[in-house]
């Protein structure tokens, strides 16, 4: 079938994708398909819940987020959990960054022993499941060094992510052209000065995109410390469910809260990224 209508500048008909493709990618049809899929998911979970006699209690949820009492406005349990998740992730990230830098510099130091230590650390952390690390830090190292579950969770997340961060840093530092090292050396800079004034400022734009991904990753993997009962979002959710049996509502709510926080983080991250990629 000859495509009707559109004519290019040269006066010849413009080639267009086949009619079937155009039909399915048009806006109204896409919307209908989208609504259909979402509808099917909602309907089947609803009927599934009905079938097992699930008693929906959405009206119970708001009090876990906020409440008005005689004392005025108060955050609910889930919000307190979210706050712990955020402070936990933030502290662990700062610590992970510090360890990551240390490991990356050891790896790049050129010292035989430094490189070997860094590689051993990386291989250990990367080849042990995060869950096992959590148990190790809480049940083994915890009693040995006498720290509580909150500290254990921060240390564990920091160590796990420092391995990933150190590789990001190393790749970013190696992305700076070798000539920059030579130029810096030739004006008499020491290794420290070269890193500080020449190499690190240039490697920021290489490390920022994967690093922001790492922040998001950290918030998500912080949920795993619920296995040692640190009072963060996931743990508090579990506690509420064991009291009230509202599994469906609470898990939906928690998923939405995580999603909300991470979408906001991602938007912030892309802003920072845009700012740093301008130069050259």
């Amino acid at each position: 079938m000859q495509s009707g209508g559109s004519i290019s500048l040269k006066g010849l008909p413009v080639r267009q994708p086949p009619a079937v493709n155009r039909f399915f990618s048009s806006t109204p049809v896409s919307l209908i398909i989208y609504c259909f899929i979402v509808g099917v998911i909602l309907y089947s979970s609803f009927t599934g819940a009905q079938a097992m006699g699930y008693n929906w209690q959405w009206y119970q949820i708001p009090k876990y987020i906020y409440s008005f009492t005689d004392n005025g406005f108060q955050f609910g349990e889930l919000m307190l959990g979210l706050w712990t998740t955020i402070t936990l992730s933030f502290t662990a990230f700062v610590l992970a960054l510090a360890i990551g830098f240390l490991v990356a510099f050891l790896r790049l130091s050129g010292l035989f022993i430094g490189t070997k230590i860094a590689i051993c650390f990386l291989e250990f952390v990367r080849n042990v499941p995060l869950l096992v690390l959590v148990y190790l830090f809480y049940y083994v190292l915890g009693p040995v060094f006498k720290y509580d579950r909150y500290t254990a969770s921060i240390l564990c997340l920091a160590v796990y992510h420092s391995a990933l961060i150190s590789e990001i840093l190393r790749a970013a530092i190696n992305s700076v052209a070798k000539g920059q090292w030579e130029a810096a050396k030739s004006i008499g800079m020491t290794k420290m000065q070269t890193y500080r004034y020449i190499i690190l400022p240039q490697s920021i734009r290489f490390m920022l995109p994967p690093m922001t991904g790492e922040v998001v990753h950290m918030v998500k993997s912080s949920a795993i410390v619920s296995v040692i009962a640190v009072a963060e979002l996931t743990t508090l959710g579990q506690n509420i469910i064991s009291d009230t049996y509202m599994a469906f509502e609470i898990w939906f709510t928690i998923a939405l809260i995580y999603m909300f926080v991470i979408v906001i983080l991602s938007i912030g991250a892309s802003q920072v990224e845009r700012r740093y990629t301008v130069i050259n």
Binding site: G179, Q180, A183, I279, N280
Partner: peptide, 10 residues
Amino acid sequence: VFQQFNLFPH
């Protein structure tokens, strides 16, 4: 002075 200049781009 280098063949590839090696100025600091930042």
